[in-house]
Design a protein around this nucleic acid. Structure first.
Lengths: 200, 200
DNA sequence: TACATGACTGACCAGCCAGTCATAATAGAT
DNA sequence: ATCTATTATGACTGGCTGGTCAGTCATGTA
């Protein structure tokens, strides 16, 4: 038997290298040769693991969204406002290394949003997220922890938008982890105060 | 004297055409020839009005940010919570045609954020916006309209981030104007409730 | 040691596009 | 009418990069 290589591990390594290079030079400015060099491989070798440049980007996104889904949907139904707030805060928390992904993502896929199908796919992700929060809100309303006059559906969507917005804002504008943490706590605070029944 | 042309008007027209093309095909995929065609001009003619492709993008940004500044900072100091809320809501409101700019912006300038100078320039814009809101919040605190235990500075920054985030979210993900309006009103509602003194 | 097979490589090429420039069209002045 | 400064044009080119492929290397088996 000849030399054997773990394909998945290889692909992971290449994606890491690509992320590094794209974050520094930008996806379009970066050449395949750059990525190969960063990965410590010959240019041709890359093509053994990815069909072409685009395939690298697509794999990168898939890997990333996988992680996001876990972060967003992995949490269990909160029983108290405090747990809910923790969940919100945690959702807004992005690992430092991954926050640069946002920029690369939009450089590569920004144009794709012009297509209906692509756009809808992403939109459905946020619908799901909105519904997720709506479910939690409704649950807490029943338990009397959130004012009952609120429309859980709309609120859920809005919360999703706000949270995603903060993540985007951080990723795109390179807000420092510390300042982001500050904002996260302030935002959570405002949200929760805005949701409780006793308000006004 | 020979043929005379209004340079500024010409440049405006080219920028409009470029915006159109970039939004549809993406900045990198679009060629100068595409832009020229959309503008109803020959390729060479473009180069009489813009030095190169990059210059078009830069002019586009400058024109856009000019408008943003007016929207954000043009409002006068709010005397009541209601006026404050109106201001917030208005800040989140983006003309339909301009919301597509966000995607183009990040496709073109996403990579530039890797540079300190560029990054800081944008960051300072948001510092200014944060300070702007902080000033309004402090003002309303003195008047007793907002709970006094809040840190106006942090809150201002957080609000700026949330608002900008919603704008980004809308622009990037192509949220419909109607749904965006819904979210705007919900968000404003939550903010205001979260800011008032009587809460909890 | 010889051989088989998968892993790896980088020089090369085709296609693409930003930017140039030689030439043509236009319109105000006389 | 004619002249000429200015504006308009699109065929052309030079540089660049994604992707290929003919050849080399590494590893394990007989």
């Amino acid at each position: 038997m000849p030399k054997v290589v773990d394909r998945e591990e290889m692909q992971h390594g290449i994606l890491d290298a690509a992320m590094q290079v794209y974050a520094k030079k930008g996806y379009h400015a970066a050449t395949i040769a750059d990525v190969a060099k960063e990965a410590g491989l010959g240019k041709g070798t890359l093509y053994l693991y990815f069909k072409n440049k685009e395939a690298i980007a697509i794999s990168m996104v898939e890997r990333h969204f996988k992680g996001m889904e876990d972060r967003f949907f992995g949490q269990k139904m909160p029983g108290t406002l405090e747990e809910f707030a923790d969940g919100l805060s945690k959702s807004m928390e992005i690992p430092d290394g991954q926050s640069q992904f946002v920029r690369v993502f939009f450089e590569v896929f920004g144009p794709s949003f012009a297509s209906e199908t692509f756009s809808e796919k992403v939109a459905s992700f946020f619908d799901k997220l909105g519904a997720h929060y709506a479910g939690q809100i409704a649950h807490l309303q029943e338990a009397g922890h959130i004012r009952s006059d609120a429309d859980a559906g709309k609120l859920g969507r809005t919360l999703a938008s706000l949270i995603d917005g903060m993540i985007l804002h951080r990723g795109l504008f390179n807000i420092s982890a510390q300042r982001h943490a500050e904002m996260r706590s302030e935002a959570t605070n405002v949200f929760v105060r805005g949701l409780i029944s006793g308000a006004q």
